[in-house]
Nucleic acid binder design. Structure first.
Length: 1023
RNA sequence: GCUGAAGUGGUGGAAUUGGUAGACACGUUGGACUUAAAAUCCAAUGUCCAUUAGGACGUACGGGUUCAAGUCCCGUCUUCAGUACCA
């Protein structure tokens, strides 16, 4: 009986679906375990073999945990709002919902055929109204909250209002925008409701503010920093400019410290935590105010080195700094304006790339040193960034290399305030070995002490204080797009108002076109029915807007990360109970948070930071019990494609006589010629051995080679010469060939066999331009009727359509089966590592599955019986149990596949037919190759799914050995092995080894200086 | 620049605590079966020297510690990912 994987896999996929085998229970005596994948955006291209890698790993873990007696939640869904469907809608007019639905169908079919143990009954889609209702609800909660820095916690805004009414804002410490003025309780109470709302906006965690944004005119939308790659939009590569706009923002900066501290409580990789730490960018130091001479202005700076305050010899402002225009003197105005204009023209990209050029201008103004009262010249320079800190720095050239370079360049004095340090060549930045000098009351102190003292003195003067700065900026939350969550917001006199929870969801309106309006409004500006009737609590036609009862609704939509910041809670709730809340209290309490999260590292500073922020907020407000969403996180590495490259001659150098009609037919066939990769390697070798310039051309002449080169192998060129002349017309007398004579073209990888040989017929028929191609093969033949083979060059790079290296899982499943695909993806290498896909290798794991099958079934049917297992059988089984269990716990799935292969090879050699061995083996394999495991399990007479079977128990006693094959080394080099009993003492081992004939031969009469014996491991003889 | 990860046969990769480097698989070569191909099975396969026996070299490069180093320490180079001229 053959291993008919197609039939088996379809059978069990249907069985699992029908029996809801993987449905999680919210009431269970078992311990819970929540395994989650980053849900996919359903793109039109469907899945390629790289996508399921993480899903396969998480599925193995989920299935393993079920065997281990856990109640496992392993759901899946779709991040179904997003730009591609909208772009498609703009091009074709098809509603994004339809595109999305179609794509989801494809995804589901592809996912199903791989045999995942997802609980689809809990599926979520972020674009479903029943889902985004709760995204809108969370947004409202954020709007209705403020952050108290004293309690490090968010509270309802109503409590802040109560505080304002009682004591104004003089005494409060809360996270708010910088611009808020101080007011007393009386003043607050006297403000109009509008003014109060305006003030409150500065405190809300979701707030409306004018922000500088990355505006992409071509897409008509704002982009996040991580959506911009090299200064152009990630999608489409359009230019991006900076622009001020009124936008919804999220006050994630309030949570900077907690997001940082929380990293210590979760099991993520160091590199990922480090990314987040860098992104949050905490630096501890002081803020210092410098009074500007002859002005009322004060320059605020942030510094991490207040201890170097006496080393300040100038100040530098960002060219965009507000004070620049106020303090610049008449004399310097022209120069300053010119500089500002020049900077504005340079893109952010230019400014960042060009680190070496030092530029700046003196403003003519001076600030006063807080302690010495000396005047300090104020400069502007583009190395100071407006967006970080206060956009101004106190420059200490002796302690900071950039300040040093700037001072040197403009001949500004560089006072030395470090004891015993030479600063004639470069700045001294080593704060751990610093002793301060020439600094009044700081003299003789180290960095730590001087910092404390400087801050103390600044505080006495009222010109500074200790301060912690974070790089993390508030996150812009508005997108000028159609296919996203609409805001539950309408405007009364320009002030945003929330729609009450009971009227949610606010459904996305219909529009005729999905483009921004001609006036530059977002696509929702095209909706005719997009106004809020406050009396009747419903969305009504825009014509009814009267700004008394009917008001305009928000035109922006939410960004992609809104829906993905909380979806893991939605899965916790069974569909039947989903209406009343985003998840019930019981469900949240039972499932808590995600135990294992698997996904790509590209979300390190986006999704993974935003969802932590939302969860912390929801925790503060008591909506959830946990304050971190993902306990353990693993990033799967990318699966790369192995492109196949064919080399086409592309000629510039042919000479000869014209034909009798005077027509130039010289070499006219050569541009159809493809050379096998051997020739390319050889020619490259000849070029490098002779140190030839890339432009050099080898000259091939008819019937003789004349290139004047000394190299080891001219045969290949002679042979090539013969071949090429046989292809060209009679008139060709000379062919020049160089490194640039080859055009590297991609072949579709499906035309390549396991030995890198091209299927020439398939390639010729692939595209018209290749129909009459001529191939020169590895053995120096012009290929006709399989007389030679053509080998392609291979290159590992990202899978992409244009490189024809994309492999689709559908064809793999059809040809080898889902179990082979699953095993092979794991077998490729460590989960977290990037690795190339090469379909050729899949025969290895496929062959393994066939061997496994044959262990159970032969031509007469099932051959498993109740015979007593042998010692060897038991040893193999228990060795395998131990290794596989350790591997799964360590996410080392590649090595367990090898372990299975070894086990099956051994059991085959042992001719094992014992059910006591083979049945537990199936359970071990079932997380990896569930279909074949179910089938054989079923054939062994089990009527329950194998997924309910307990994981086999490892028993040490079967692995206990009585003897060991000792490696005997001489001076650390292993020479031979000796089989010795493990009971022997050190002395006995030494005796046995020294008496052995091979030892005597090896020593050749010498007496060893020393014999190292590690019982059970090794013997090393020195001397 | 900084941070993080990595560098092992022709290829993907093993070696989890310093103890037989190259497991497992692909590919290659030879053989069996077959009219033939596919499939399957058997054997060999790090490099070099040697008919054999055996030997030398070998985990990016240069040093070091150790009876023993892919693994630990110091220095250098290369690749990949992230990032911020961050005061």
């Amino acid at each position: 009986m053959k291993y008919n994987f197609n039939e088996i896999e379809a059978k069990w996929q249907n069985y699992w679906a029908e029996h809801q085998t993987f449905k999680a229970e919210n009431n269970s005596d078992k311990p819970k375990y929540y395994v989650l994948d980053m849900f996919p955006y359903p793109s039109g291209a469907g899945l390629h073999v790289g996508h399921p890698l993480g899903y396969i790993a998480s599925d193995i873990y989920a299935r393993y945990k079920r065997h281990k007696g856990f109640n496992v939640l392993h759901p899946q869904g779709y991040d179904s709002f997003g730009l591609p469907a909208e772009q498609y809608a703009i091009q074709t007019g098809q509603h994004p919902a339809i595109t999305t639905e179609t794509n989801i169908k494809t995804y589901r079919r592809q996912l199903d055929q791989i045999g995942f143990s997802f609980d689809w009954s809990r599926e979520v889609r972020t674009s479903n109204p029943e889902y985004y209702k709760w995204t809108q609800w969370i947004f409202i909660q954020l709007f209705e909250s403020w952050y108290c820095k004293v309690h490090e916690k968010a509270f309802p805004i109503s409590e802040l209002i109560a505080l304002f009414e009682e004591q104004g804002n003089y005494t409060l410490n809360e996270s708010c925008n910088e611009s808020v003025d101080l007011f007393s309780a009386e003043e607050w109470n006297s403000y109009s409701s509008e003014k109060q709302q305006e003030i409150l906006l500065n405190y809300r965690l979701a707030y409306l503010a004018e922000t500088e944004v990355n505006w992409c005119p071509a897409l008509g939308t704002v982009l996040a920093n991580d959506e911009i790659v090299n200064g152009v939009s990630e999608r489409g590569g359009h230019p991006v400019i900076r622009k001020k706009m009124t936008q919804w923002s999220m006050r994630i900066s309030a949570y900077a410290e907690r997001l940082l501290q929380g990293l210590d409580t979760i099991d993520w990789t160091d590199s990922l935590k480090e990314s987040q730490r860098n992104w949050i960018g905490k630096s501890v130091g002081a803020s210092v105010s410098f009074n500007v001479n002859d002005h009322d202005e004060v320059i605020e700076v942030f510094t991490t080195r207040p201890d170097t305050i006496f080393g300040v010899s100038f100040m530098t402002l960002a060219p965009e700094h507000d004070l620049v225009s106020k303090i610049t003197t008449e004399d310097q105005k022209a120069e300053v304006d010119a500089y500002i204009e020049a900077t504005a023209k340079r893109s952010e990209r230019d400014r960042m790339a060009d680190v070496k050029t030092i530029s700046g201008v003196f403003t003519g103004a001076y600030a006063e040193h807080p302690f010495t009262k000396e005047p300090i010249p104020i400069w502007i320079g583009d190395y100071v960034l407006a967006g970080y800190g206060t956009g101004a720095v106190m420059s200490v050239p002796c302690g900071d290399q950039r300040d040093y370079d700037f001072a040197k360049h403009f001949n500004i004095p560089i006072p030395n305030i470090f004891e015993g340090v030479d600063i004639s060549e470069e700045a001294f930045g080593d704060k751990d070995n610093t002793i301060i000098a020439n600094s009044d009351f700081l003299n003789g102190m180290n960095y730590k002490k001087a910092t404390k003292r400087a801050i103390y003195e600044l505080e006495q003067l009222g010109q500074g204080e200790g301060k912690t700065n974070y790089r993390l900026r508030d996150a812009v939350f508005s997108r000028q797009r159609y296919w996203g969550e609409p805001f539950p917001v309408y405007y009364v006199n320009g002030m945003p108002q929330m729609i009450e929870q009971k009227h949610l969801p606010i459904l996305l309106p219909e529009v005729e076109k999905y483009l921004p309006t001609e006036e530059g409004e977002p696509p929702l500006g095209r909706a005719d029915v997009w106004a809020w009737d406050k009396k009747n609590n419903k969305v009504v036609s825009n014509e009814l807007i009267d700004n008394e009862n009917v008001f305009p609704l928000e035109l922006n939509t939410m960004p992609g990360w809104a829906g993905s910041s909380w979806y893991f809670f939605r899965y916790m709730e069974e569909v039947a109970n989903r209406d009343g809340a985003f998840a019930t209290e019981d469900a949240l309490k039972y499932w808590e948070n995600v135990d294992l999260y698997i996904g790509g590292s590209e979300h390190a500073t986006g999704h993974l930071l935003y969802s932590r922020f939302w969860v912390k907020f929801m925790h503060d407000r008591g909506f959830v019990g946990v304050d971190e969403p993902f306990k353990k996180l693993i990033n799967q590495g990318m699966i790369l494609g192995t492109s196949a490259i064919v080399y086409r001659l592309s000629f510039y150098g042919c000479q000869g006589q014209r034909n009798k009609y005077g027509k130039d037919t010289v070499g006219d066939n050569l541009n159809k010629v493809f050379l096998s990769s051997k020739y390319i390697d050889e020619i490259e070798r000849i070029f490098s051995e002779n140190k030839l310039d890339k432009e050099f051309r080898l000259t091939l002449r008819r019937s003789k080679l004349n290139n004047g080169l000394s190299h080891s192998n001219t045969n290949i060129l002679n042979n090539l010469s013969d071949l090429l002349f046989s292809i060209t017309t009679e008139n060709t007398t000379q062919i020049s060939i160089g490194m640039n004579s080859f055009q590297n073209l991609y072949s579709d990888v499906s035309f390549i066999n396991a030995s890198d040989e091209l299927d020439i017929e398939a390639f010729k028929n692939w595209r018209e331009e290749f129909n009459d191609a001529i191939f020169i093969g590895e053995n120096g033949e012009i290929i006709e009727n399989n007389n030679d083979v053509y080998k392609v060059g291979r290159e590992v790079e990202k899978m992409s359509k244009s490189k024809y290296n994309v492999v689709n899982p559908d064809s793999i499943c059809e040809q080898y089966g889902a179990d082979s695909l699953r095993l092979y993806e794991m077998f490729l290498g460590p989960l977290e590592q990037a690795k190339p896909w090469n379909t050729a290798g899949i025969t290895g794991v496929h062959g393994f599955l066939k061997k496994l099958w044959k262990l159970f079934v032969d031509d007469n049917g099932l051959k498993v019986n109740d015979v007593e297992p042998t010692k060897d059988n038991l040893k193999t089984l228990h060795k395998t149990i131990k290794k596989v269990e350790e591997d799964i716990e360590n996410f080392s799935f590649n090595t367990s596949v090898s372990t299975f292969m070894i086990a099956v090879n051994e059991l085959t050699a042992q001719k094992c037919t014992s059910k006591a061995i083979l049945e537990p083996l199936l359970v071990l394999i079932s997380p990896y190759a569930p279909h074949i495991a179910e089938e054989l399990w079923n054939r062994l007479g089990n009527d329950q799914s194998i997924s309910t079977a307990p994981f086999p128990k490892f028993e040490e006693k079967h692995l206990v050995e009585s003897s060991k094959n000792y490696p005997i080394s001489f001076n650390g080099k292993m020479r031979f092995t000796i089989e010795l009993s493990l009971d022997l003492s050190k002395e006995d081992i030494e005796k046995a080894v020294m008496a052995h004939e091979k030892t005597i031969a090896q020593l050749d009469g010498r007496t060893p200086k020393k014999v190292i014996i590690v019982p059970g491991k090794i013997v090393n003889i020195v001397g």
